[in-house]
């Protein structure tokens, strides 16, 4: 056992480092989003705790830790507790395959992309189980919406990525990045880029795709009954999800860590941060479609487009376009 740990010490340190860095960054994103929203909405946002309110998330965390860890008496207890954990863990697992620099990656797996897709599919269980276990009608409606929405958008999330796979010939994310050394895939795969982005927002349940938790309709949707640290896990999961999707877009379409002059990690962070800003801007700018509109948009427009993208990419590849 011990020799096993020693053998993989480097890897373990990387994992520990990742978790130790990602979770605080996820929490900081909450503050960052609120400040950015404030900036775009002609108001201040949190600016009281620490310089520029930067310690707001810490204050929130302390408050939330001291909250009564309450489980509604009518809830299905084990599932109720399990649901937020699944959400946070599945998102955190996905980070394992994201190559942030040529060397900084936990698992440079050959099926990295598939692993990512599998983990995002798993994350849905968190929402559905939370909705179900809460035994609350609003939560259930939220869970139902989440199920339908995620199943629909998962399909073409996968399809939209196949174009990238065809071009690079690999499921390995590092290789996909390296394959973009001449041309970022956002150019040949623009359609795939747009579709993946839409699907990514839908997967992370952010406006305009926040129907499972549509506040004005379902109070808080699937996490209506959650409070304290379990609620914080959902919250963290959502922000980590947003970060993950941004990183994936960077990796798959924007050349990952590649860029002139600056070190790779800086390029990676810059690209990811810009995408995160874009996500936040979307939230500030767009209203929410209706549930059926969202689904029909997915099935009637995005899926055919994703398939078209796949077919055209494959055809071009076959005839030796690239």
């Amino acid at each position: 056992m011990l020799d096993l740990i020693i053998e993989h010490a480097g890897l373990l340190i990387t994992i520990a480092l990742m978790v130790a860095v990602l979770i605080p960054i996820g929490a900081m994103l909450v503050w960052f989003e609120r400040r950015m929203l404030g900036f775009w909405q002609q108001r201040y946002g949190p600016n009281r705790v620490g310089p520029f309110g930067i310690l707001q998330s810490l204050a929130d965390l302390i408050k939330i830790l001291f909250k009564h860890d309450w489980i509604p008496p009518f809830a299905d207890k084990p599932v109720f507790i399990l649901a937020p954990m699944i959400g946070a863990v599945s998102v955190l697992m996905s980070f394992a395959v994201v190559p942030m620099t040529p060397n900084l990656v936990v698992s440079d797996s050959n099926i990295g992309l598939l692993f990512f897709l599998a983990m995002t599919s798993l994350a849905v269980y968190s929402v559905i189980l939370a909705g179900w276990a809460s035994n609350n009608k609003y939560a259930m409606l939220g869970g139902m919406r989440a199920a339908a929405q995620t199943i629909s958008y998962e399909v073409f999330m996968g399809v939209s990525l196949l174009g990238v796979v065809i071009l690079s010939g690999s499921f390995n994310l590092s290789e996909i990045v390296l394959a973009q050394s001449e041309l970022w895939y956002v150019v040949p795969q623009f359609l795939g880029f747009v579709i993946f982005m839409i699907a990514g927002i839908a997967e992370s349940h952010r406006l305009p795709f926040d129907l499972p938790e549509a506040e004005t309709e379902l109070c808080a949707g699937f996490h209506t009954e959650y409070s304290g640290i379990k609620f914080a896990l959902f919250f963290l999961g959502e922000y980590l999800g947003m970060m993950l999707i941004s990183m994936m877009i960077t990796t798959l379409f924007l050349g990952g860590w590649m860029g002139p002059w600056l070190p790779p990690i800086v390029w990676f962070v810059i690209k990811t941060l810009l995408l995160i800003c874009f996500f936040i801007l979307l939230r500030a700018a767009l209203p929410r479609p209706r549930f059926d509109q969202l689904l029909s948009f997915g099935w009637k427009w995005v899926l055919p487009l994703a398939l078209l993208n796949l077919v055209v990419t494959a055809a071009v590849k076959l005839w030796g376009g690239f």
Partner: peptide, 16 residues
């Protein structure tokens, strides 16, 4: 009205 439909920002501008 915009907020009920999910547009979060207009209400803040209008409050200004």
């Amino acid at each position: 009205f915009a907020q009920d439909i999910g547009a979060l920002s207009p209400i803040f501008y209008m409050f200004v």
